[in-house]
Nucleic acid binder design. Structure first.
Length: 228
DNA sequence: GCGACAG
DNA sequence: ATCTTGTCGC
């Protein structure tokens, strides 16, 4: 599939933040988004080592599933190098180049992208899912495993229970329980999707495990690609 | 100034 | 993310 060319690459933290600020106005946070996506792509990245600096070997995977059956429609992997040090808030710059390469290897154009990490639930309201959404033009959401920004009440214990994730007085996402008595995930919108739809789709993608099947598939594929 | 801090 | 032993449970 087509993906917009990467903007000039930042060498410093300030440049990276400037890029986020420049791209943020391109976000579409009002469109209804895909109510019934037929295909959903999961994105994930695995690392080889080398700590949090630049240069670590990594593998990025994009796995397209049929949303109704959760069967794999297509897979794409790319190996590369960490393009930026790990800095909370600038996480996207670390793996974006390789992730984009994996997306370009896709023949299918998915109806929705599910990223590991966050969308607008981000200090500058421009997390990885926003970045990927703007670069591809596709609806995108983020599913994070641990808290990053904002405050939230503990959601109820049952699958489907949720509580709003708020930051500076605005709702930036939702803490969603995907399985009974299992630690919830953090869902936030990235691009061209509503929060209600995002949460409903995440639940549909996670019938048996805490994380959506899209993420689990991409995680496994990227990990396997790293050892070869 | 200090602690926290997606993956 | 990754590094890792043991442990609980289907």
């Amino acid at each position: 599939m087509e993906v917009r060319d990467l903007h000039p690459w930042p060498d410093t933290r300030a440049e990276a933040e400037a890029i986020q600020d420049g791209l943020r106005p391109l976000l579409d946070l009002d469109s209804p988004g895909p109510v019934r996506p037929r295909t959903v792509a999961g994105l994930d990245v695995s690392y080889a080592g080398d700590g949090d600096g630049t240069g670590a070997r990594l593998a990025a995977a994009a796995v397209v599933l049929d949303a109704a059956t959760l069967r794999v429609v297509e897979e794409s992997v790319a190996v590369g190098t960490a393009a930026f040090p790990y800095i909370p808030g600038l996480f996207a710059f670390r793996e974006l180049p390789t992730l984009v390469e994996a997306l370009r290897g896709l023949r299918t154009v998915p109806d929705l992208l599910v990223c590991d990490g966050f969308g607008v639930a981000h200090p500058r309201r421009f997390g990885l899912a926003c970045h990927v959404g703007v670069l591809t033009g596709l609806p995108a959401i983020g599913v994070g495993k641990t808290a990053f920004v904002g405050e939230h009440a503990t959601p109820g214990p049952r699958r489907g229970d949720a509580s709003p994730l708020t930051d500076d007085g605005e709702v930036v996402g939702r803490v969603l329980r995907t399985q009974d008595d299992v630690k919830p995930v953090f869902v936030s919108v990235g691009h061209r999707t509503g929060l209600d739809d995002a949460c409903r789709i995440v639940l549909e993608l996670a019938p048996d495990y805490r994380l959506p099947e899209t993420t689990r598939r991409a995680d496994r594929l990227s990990r396997d690609a790293l050892r070869s």
